[in-house]
Write a protein that binds this DNA or RNA. Structure first.
Lengths: 225, 225
DNA sequence: GCAATAGTGTCTCTCAGACACTATGGT
DNA sequence: ACCATAGTGTCTGAGAGACACTATTGC
């Protein structure tokens, strides 16, 4: 006779972040069913052991199904767990965070995706508020010393644009000369022949892109002891 | 009629690390049952939803049960998942890593705990080899710019001892003056009145300890752009 | 020419590392 | 006295930030 073993609810959630007008935003969806019906939540859902290769694969599936977005950057954030976070029972959520350029969200054209400023979150389902805050902390932290923010820029971008992204994330103005020095020293960008003129009445800026070989890999700044 | 839903096996594993003679070691246990009976494995086991407050709590329980150690530092590493890593089925392992001073392991006196050098791992169960490698990478990475290595030292330690720990982790010699400057600048240590003379025929060194208020919180080095 | 932003040359000030020195114990 | 290691004062070279200058567009 097998004893009934208490079950663990296994889910995956994704914190999809983007930068709109120098403000960091999260993608939210209104839940269609209980619990937290009609309350905003992160894109997420149950793991499907029969089809998901792993939790990362499940995260990509969530994004594809619910937002039709294939993110240029996706990384595991952390796993949240406990008896109280989900009314359905003792649960685990393996959380990933993704970065996308703002225009990618628009193109995906999912009308039911809401963008909320991470500094002024609405009421969220489960412990999603804490999860978003953790993701923002992680992004801000890593932005200090890595190429992570590049994934918030589009495929091609100018150095001034990239600097504005870094400044938005770190919340402080950066020295132009030092910033450029760092970027060349990190050796992760390559200039594109074409330029950028749409800006208006001034000198156009050189366009850059991430070196293809570094596409899915962060570049770090030397630092430390 | 409820369809039989394929189950996810939920476990927690702990990578318990220590430094012995300037070599980084992992604590391993020989498994007592299938799968991987008699093969070395990380301390770990099933989540107990009826008693564990969360996965961190479960990790502490694993350590207490299997090694009788209460680690001074415990942090979530990552979650590993997939259909193939455990023959019992599609599984998730939420992995934590812990740091302890070497002498704490001896005191715990668990005869069945083996220490293996992380550079020369024996055959391990499941995907535990990859897990250990991830933990070592994380520890080495964080050692570059945080107070993390302090938890490998005992309650009290001298600056030369601490420097040797950092050097062992980073695999390179550090400048004595710079190291000391960094330590005072990080402002996380406090001198203890008593000194340290056991060393032998030379000047004794000042003993330090982590400031109590920073006990469970890393101190980071300013860095970056 | 002028406004506006892109991009660079250069100076200075700070800080990390090297070195040498002093300090303090044991033998 | 001598050795060994702890701990500090100081010099120098590299790098970050500030500033000013040049470059290139639209009007």
């Amino acid at each position: 006779m097998q004893k009934m073993m208490q079950q663990v609810v296994c889910t995956v959630d994704v914190v999809l972040l983007t930068l709109q007008d120098s403000a960091l935003k999260v993608a939210l969806l209104k839940r269609g069913r209980a619990p937290f019906k009609d309350v905003q939540a992160l894109p997420g859902g149950y793991i499907h052991p029969d089809t998901d290769a792993d939790t990362r694969d499940a995260a990509l599936r969530m994004l594809a199904q619910k937002t039709a977005i294939q993110p240029p950057y996706l990384e595991q954030l952390a796993t949240f767990s406990g008896p109280a976070r989900d009314p359905r029972g003792w649960s685990i959520s393996v959380v990933y965070y993704a970065l996308v350029p703002f225009d990618v969200i628009g193109q995906a054209g999912q009308a039911d995706v809401t963008l909320a400023s991470v500094d002024k979150l609405p009421r969220l389902s489960f412990d999603h508020r804490a999860i978003v805050n953790t993701a923002v902390q992680r992004l801000r932290g890593k932005s200090q010393y890595s190429s992570l923010p590049c994934y918030l820029a589009g495929e091609a971008f100018t150095l001034p644009q990239l600097q504005r992204i870094y400044e938005a994330l770190m919340g402080e103005a950066l020295n132009k000369v030092s910033f450029r020095r760092k970027m060349v020293e990190m050796d992760m960008l390559e200039a594109i022949a074409g330029e950028f003129s749409a800006a208006g009445a001034h000198r156009p800026a050189q366009l850059y892109r991430l070196k293809p070989e570094l596409r899915d890999q962060l570049t770090l700044i030397a630092r430390g002891l």
